[in-house]
Computed example of a mutant assay.
Amino acid sequence: MRTYGLVVFIFCSITWAHAQHAFRGIVDKDRWQNNVYLSVIEDYRKLSGVFSEQIISRQRPDSLGNFLFTGNQLDTENRIYRIHVDNCNDAEQGQNHYDGHCNDSKEILFIAKGNDTINFPFSFDNQMFCTVSSGNPKADAFVQIDSLKEIMKYDYGEFRSEANRKLNNRKWFKTLQDFGKSLNEPLAELYIYAFLSERGNNFHQYYLEDLKTNPYYSNLLKRLKDAYPNSAYTQQYANELKADQYSIQSNSSFTNRSWSIVWLICTISILLNIILLFKLLKKKQNSQLELTSLLTKQEQNILDLLLQDKSNKDIAEALFVSLSTVKTHVNNIYKKLNVQSRTETKELFNR
């Protein structure tokens, strides 16, 4: 979320009659010509922007730029609030406050209860350099986080390389998580969670990987339920967490199924190749049997010796026949098998 200047000095909370709040400050009248708006944010995915459904009060600053929001309608437990100014003219105001986009606007987020007093005594242009003090120790949590994020920007900007980005992703992901937890305020952790888990953010893929094994997220849900059991924040986070975990499990199951299908296809392919090879071998064996069936018993004996690379003389001695008889049988074998030489004969029988 982009948060622009606003020096914030939050003084001790005081208890007004009927738990009355008072948020007062000064805007630069030369810079900001229109109203100042107070919004309560129940959807932490809409922390930054201008949304008409969030606005609960509007004030026109006086001639010196002073404004004051007061009343007794705010919740008695901590909620996220935003004060913003913009320079949208009356004709554009409805559209800008409907779709959440207003290019010329400044805003600040803070945590407050129904009886808090908060002062914004300077212009909207110095927020990142302020020192915040308050009787509500949670009020300045977002300002502290934004200050840390400003430091983070320098790390990323030092070297705009892929290697530097990956290293900083790992470093700042954990740094922001640990810092949010140290604030001891689940709403501040939600602010960081919304930033780290935002789709399209550099951290989003890292968040999905972290969600697989890190118990931080389930522990945050427990902290939210303990601190804000009935709030919209807790229910929204629980729903998002469940959806993201289901998505990860589904993708993992899909990947496992995909690999199972690949292995099944490979196994079937191997089995089919073995069956095909067996059939080809069987067919060749049958073909060889058919060929040898054309030969007489003596010719088959001579063929066996011939395939063993025996010479005509060796065959004659082995079968106790004359050399001329062997030659005659060999010529008959060539004719019946339709070959011209011993080499072709051996190739026919794969020897």
Rank of each mutant, 00 (worst) to 15 (best):
Glu317Ser: 13
Asp309His: 11
Leu337His: 10
Thr345Gly: 05
Val321Glu: 11
Lys346Ser: 11
Ala318Val: 02
Ala318Leu: 11
Lys297Tyr: 11
Leu319Ser: 10
Arg342Asn: 13
Val321Thr: 13
Leu306Thr: 09
Lys313Val: 09
Phe320His: 15
Thr296Ala: 01
Gln298Glu: 15
Val339Arg: 03
Gln300Thr: 13
Ile315Ala: 01
Leu319Asp: 10
Asn331Val: 07
Gln298Pro: 00
Lys310Phe: 11
Leu305Ile: 09
Asn332Ile: 10
Ser287Met: 08
Asp309Ile: 02
Ser287Lys: 10
Leu323Lys: 13
Asp309Trp: 02
Asn331Met: 05
Arg342His: 12
Asn332Phe: 03
Thr325Glu: 14
Ser341Ala: 08
Gln308Phe: 04
Asn312Arg: 04
Lys327Asp: 13
Lys313Gln: 15
Leu295Thr: 10
Thr325Arg: 08
Leu291Arg: 09
Leu323Ala: 06
Gln298Ser: 14
Gln300Ser: 08
Val330Lys: 15
Gln298Trp: 00
Leu305Gly: 02
Ser311Gln: 08
Thr292Trp: 01
Gln300Ala: 12
Arg342Cys: 01
Lys336Ala: 08
Ile302Asn: 00
Lys297Ile: 12
Val339Cys: 07
Lys310Leu: 05
Leu295Arg: 06
Arg342Tyr: 08
Lys297Phe: 11
Ser324Met: 04
Asn338Ser: 10
Val339Pro: 08
Gln308Lys: 15
Gln288Arg: 11
Leu307Asn: 08
Ser341Thr: 12
Thr343Ala: 10
Lys327Cys: 07
Ser311Pro: 04
Glu299Thr: 07
Asp309Phe: 04
Glu290Asp: 07
Gln308Asp: 15
Asp304Gln: 11
Glu290Ala: 11
Leu289Arg: 12
Leu319Trp: 03
Leu295Lys: 07
Glu299Ala: 06
Ile315Asp: 00
Leu337Ala: 09
Thr343Tyr: 13
Glu290Ile: 03
Leu305Gln: 10
Lys327Thr: 14
Val321Leu: 13
Ile302Ser: 03
Thr296Pro: 07
Gln298Phe: 01
Glu347Ser: 12
Leu306Ile: 04
Leu319Ile: 04
Asn331Pro: 00
Ser324Gln: 14
Lys346Glu: 14
Asp314Gln: 15
Glu347Asn: 14
Tyr334Asp: 05
Asp314His: 02
Val326Ala: 05
Gln300Tyr: 01
Glu290Lys: 10
Lys335Val: 08
